[in-house]
Design a protein around this nucleic acid. Structure first.
Lengths: 212, 212
DNA sequence: TAGATTGTTAATCGATTAACAATC
DNA sequence: TAGATTGTTAATCGATTAACAATC
């Protein structure tokens, strides 16, 4: 009940473990030690054991970890089986790219519908997902209970839309817009994918490389 | 010369400072103290001063920081003015979305060309950028000296393409594919944008929220 | 049983925060 | 000059790594 909060650093490594174990599983490998896993992933064995023991003892002394067991444990920790409802707002280039290519289901979400204001996309389907008018957002969420919203519309609408979504009971926001959503602006869980910041950081590193 | 390495945490905050200062600048604000900036950005004043002093003393006691001066200092630190050549590999949905919408120039790069294997896109232009045959990659880079490669092709080609790019003198890779590139696999600077890991982490948080 | 490897506690390291003298 | 705010050193906090007893 009163388990202490798991640090963000640990949470961000869980999907990496999951992906790696999934690969091992597909290659027919059934057991692995923290040392092997650490070598392959570029972590330390200590760190892997510490991370996993935030959630429970999944291994066995003298043996290691069962690949399939650990994979499914991590899947459960992340909640990948729950298949929560999701919607996407802004069916522009990026929105359509995500609808067309991204596997939401493997991340625990089912894409229910997309929304946009542009009359030339409203009414169309992208990869089987209906694009509806943004006006019908409230009505739709009330009827279908979406817990995640993917924001791929222009950045100047971020705050207003976020407010609306929170009022409608949306729990999480996957934010691709240029506007940040800080903890004091919303109670929803927010994960921001910041292309600009990512590339600027890379620019710095390339720069440094040149100097060294 | 022998300045000690700036930590990754600091580097990742630089673009945030830059963006914020840019906004202040556009709103006509000319000076700001570390405290004001900290309040607005949700950091501590100490941290901001520590971060900036990795690179030099840009402020003035009793006054604070000149917005425009600090903005341009950070821009220089990040190398945003240098306009290095960039190419993009994989002109699918995501690649075209980036070519069409993303402002590479504000991140210090000029997009020179895109490459793909599919005959239906080769020869077309996306937002003024030519899509060329992947066969002509080596020739093109030798002629135009691209320092950055944006990888938006399928994940199973990541390693092979990376090897090829490194041999051609490319310095940095902005990796959108599902395959990681670890430090022991390449000497290039790598920045990976991992959609799946990002959404899985959010899935965990939404999950936790429900339990609390 | 002996060997291996975990779970967990202790030590180390690095990053963040606090404090304050320097100075505009 | 007095007030404000930096640059910088010291203290704290948290995350990573090392060590080792428990145990399969």
């Amino acid at each position: 009940m009163t388990k202490r909060k798991v640090s963000d650093a640990v949470i961000r490594r869980l999907p990496k473990y999951y992906r790696y174990l999934d690969e091992l599983h597909e290659n027919g490998i059934t057991r692995i030690s923290s040392h092997q896993l650490a070598d392959e992933m570029g972590f330390t064995a200590s760190q892997i054991r510490q991370d996993l023991n935030c959630f429970g003892g999944f291994g066995q002394q003298g043996y290691g970890y069962g690949v399939e067991k650990l994979r499914s444990e991590i899947s459960a920790i992340l909640g990948l089986q729950d298949m929560r409802g999701a919607i996407l707002i802004g069916a522009g280039n990026l929105g359509r790219a995500l609808l067309g290519n991204f596997d939401f289901e493997s991340c625990g979400f089912r894409m229910l519908a997309a929304f946009d204001v542009a009359s030339e996309v409203v009414g169309k389907k992208v990869n089987g997902v209906d694009v509806l008018a943004l006006d019908s957002l409230d009505e739709f969420i009330k009827a279908h209970s979406a817990e995640l919203a993917v924001l791929t519309m222009p950045g100047d609408e971020t705050r207003e839309i976020a407010k609306r979504l929170e009022a409608l009971g949306v729990k999480g926001v996957w934010n691709f817009t240029s506007r940040e959503l800080r903890a004091d602006e919303t109670n929803m869980c927010v994960e921001t994918v910041h292309f600009t910041e990512s590339l600027m950081a890379l620019c710095y590193k390339v720069n440094e490389e040149g100097k060294a």
